[in-house]
């Protein structure tokens, strides 16, 4: 997913995450959820936080940033998602949104 500015990123995240059924099947294999402090450290959490961010219903609080940046991008979750969601793509796109919001790469 190449970022063509914040709007394109948001549109991509919205489309991808709207497929989520909240079944949690992705969580079983996620290493960071098992060792992490809450659901935000797992794929179901990351997908749904990304969704809130993309819809403008949440902001990059430290908990949200931690959720996104603690992901290993290991794709174990992809093996189990019945919705076929590109979870890692969503996490990366959300990180890109964060970077844009922080003007780190200006």
């Amino acid at each position: 997913m190449q970022s063509n500015g914040a709007e394109a990123l948001r549109a991509y995240i919205r489309a991808e995450t709207s497929k989520c059924m909240f079944c949690g099947f992705c969580e079983a294999l996620c290493p960071t959820l098992y060792h992490g402090p809450h659901r935000g450290y797992g794929p179901r959490g990351r997908v749904n936080l990304a969704r809130l961010i993309a819809r403008g219903e949440a902001s990059f609080t430290s908990d949200v940033v931690e959720s996104m940046y603690s992901c290993l991008l290991c794709k174990a979750c992809h093996l189990k998602c019945p919705g076929g969601i590109d979870i890692v793509g969503v996490v990366r796109a959300t990180r890109s949104l964060y970077v844009l919001s922080q003007e780190v790469s200006a």
Binding site: P31, T32, Y34, G36, Y41, Y69, L72, A76
Partner: peptide, 26 residues
């Protein structure tokens, strides 16, 4: 194989402790 378990490495510089826990488990 396809079901492999991550070593925890990719987050070593962001969340070193989490990374270490995952590595220990693996």
């Amino acid at each position: 194989g396809r079901m492999t378990y991550c070593c925890g490495g990719p987050v070593e510089s962001i969340a070193p402790r989490l990374s270490r826990k995952i590595a220990s488990m693996r």
